[in-house]
Design a protein around this nucleic acid. Structure first.
Lengths: 340, 340
DNA sequence: CTGAAAGCGCTTACAG
DNA sequence: CTGAAAGCGCTTACAG
């Protein structure tokens, strides 16, 4: 079934059918009715490739997982963002196409694949550093939106959560609970996110007039559980411990708790702990883990709207920062204190 | 940049360039070299829409989340399967397109969207019952592969894990540890998966010559944690408890454990527990949760290969069942027993 | 081994 | 308000 057959059946020209399909105003109500009926009956759906070829617009958004490591369909945080993004883009009339990293590795770069598929825009999901292939895309005329990735192109924007504010909420909470000796467990030094959280943490501690003890700032090789365990072992061996610790991810926090338990230390009685991300496991651990939740749905929905506006030339990009929320559970020791 | 310009630059015809792009043999090595060089320099990538229009093949696989409820980007099990599927399809030269459910709701069905995008095949992800829109696709000439969904069309196949075998592994393990009084926590009665696991469980118990106590078989409204908690409350109130329980999901198991703890019962000393799915949280709970892992990577890779073969007419569909594995942790009480 | 030409199914000025 | 025709960028028999 194609537009020509529909035209024949309705006894009109192909142009007329096309106009009706695209809601042009200058068609008589009578012909419109007749044609619509036939379209209904036949279940006709125009060929996307022909339409794209003729218009250069595909109604397709390219999805790129930029970080080579650990960021794919198995990453809960980005996935939740993507989920909200997908839903919103669907409402706006777009479908998503996922570029296989494998194809990328064996030749084509992201930009040429965007051209290849005539995508109307791209969402780039990362959290870590920029590869050259991403920069090329960023600098191109294809609208791009970064998630936790600061794009700078003229046709680019990004959404992110405020990593400084995350840390400042943690410090404030610790402060109100009476903790003055604060430690930190971060990821590797080339993680922007970990660095931002650490910088914000330091700044907030100083803001409250507390002292920084550098011995209480330790780092793992990544954001995962074993790194948290190892980091905490280091802390334990290096002498007196802080009263409260902020870990840059929930998994780091859980690893640290495992190490503390092995040494007979109690959480939160001996050391309070706050993680970051609010992964599912937080609710089921002992103690349950106090953490910072980023509003993933909001990040996804905002990304969708910003991209849509760029595609339709209603904006030249920009950025949006979403506010984090503290989720209080047991590990911070709130229930042990009077906050009144 | 398009094929015509490349042809001009190389001083050959468009046909020749096309043949070179598609690895036709009947081109002289000399012209091939010249053209390839120009393609390299210009970074030319053929337009997908033009190619699709001409060939009716898109190198695109449609991804459909069939179950309305709880099965989307936030579902860890299906996502892990999809992740492996995506990687494998990438290697085979395909990209993935995700159909927005929203568009679906407001008009088009899955079949016509497949036609619209000329997808070469579809993967349908579900686990629960069949909607009519899925059946239409299943019965069409478009190759489809179901994940935990039994498709029956002539051009359809599916992969699944053996829910009966899952249960039989659990029973065997309980049996070897000396437990003879076995309970079960399932999901709602219209979940095929839960029903299969329960049927397999009953069958295996009888196979080992043990008795079934129907009072020890309880059900929640879904696979989530609160359902497990409620189901266990029912069990506790209804009288003497079994020595070991198999829950149809890890979250059900965790909910059940929470209820048991509230009643001062110890796991596994008073009641042993085995869950199902091997979600991330299993490693971080107290006690850590013994569970059944389904080989998600293998499911995804198999689905990709089966779909590929159907697309290329090397197979007419079929099905494949992946074997589950028991992951022993603390909650089953293995460490308390001599299995010697 | 190479190329001219028709065709894939749409859209869009343009003429009427 | 309607339609004829060119064009989008490819592929593929077919002729040479």
């Amino acid at each position: 079934m194609n537009i020509k057959k529909i035209a024949e059946m309705a006894g009109v020209s192909v142009s007329t059918v096309s106009k009706i399909m695209n809601n042009y105003p200058d068609v008589s109500e009578k012909t419109k009715q007749r044609v619509m009926e036939i379209i209904e009956q036949t279940g006709y759906s125009p060929s996307n490739s022909a339409k794209t070829l003729a218009t250069k617009k595909s109604s397709l958004i390219g999805v790129i997982f930029a970080g080579e490591l650990n960021v794919d369909f198995t990453h809960p945080f980005f996935l939740a963002v993507l989920n909200a993004f997908k839903k919103q883009m669907g409402v706006l009339g777009y479908d998503l196409i996922f570029f296989s990293n494998e194809k990328f590795l064996s030749g084509g770069d992201y930009y040429s694949r965007c051209v290849h598929f005539h995508v109307d825009g791209c969402v780039i999901i990362s959290g870590e550093h920029m590869e050259p292939a991403i920069q090329e895309l960023d600098m191109s005329s294809i609208p791009c939106i970064g998630v936790d990735l600061e794009l700078k192109g003229k046709k680019s924007g990004y959404v992110t959560s405020d990593n400084y504010q995350i840390s400042s909420k943690v410090v404030e909470h610790f402060y109100l609970l009476g903790y003055r000796e604060l430690g930190f467990i971060g990821s590797t030094a080339n993680s922007d996110i970990s660095n931002q959280r650490e910088a914000g943490y330091v700044k907030a501690i100083e803001g409250f007039g507390m002292n920084i003890n550098e011995n209480w700032f330790v780092h793992g090789d990544d954001f995962f559980e074993p790194s948290g365990y190892d980091a905490m072992q280091k802390l334990i061996q290096s002498g007196p411990l802080p009263k409260a610790i902020f870990a840059a991810s929930d998994l780091l926090a859980l690893g640290a708790i495992r190490a503390l338990k092995e040494h007979g230390l109690r959480i939160p009685e001996d050391i309070a702990m706050i993680g970051c991300d609010d992964i599912e496991a937080c609710k089921y651990t002992t103690p349950t883990l106090t953490t910072i939740r980023q509003n993933k749905e909001r990040l996804g929905i905002l990304a969708a709207h910003m991209l849509y506006d760029m595609i339709n030339n209603q904006s030249e990009g920009g950025s949006f920062v979403v506010e984090p929320a503290l989720i209080v559970r047991e590990s911070c020791g709130s229930h042990l204190h009077d906050q009144g």
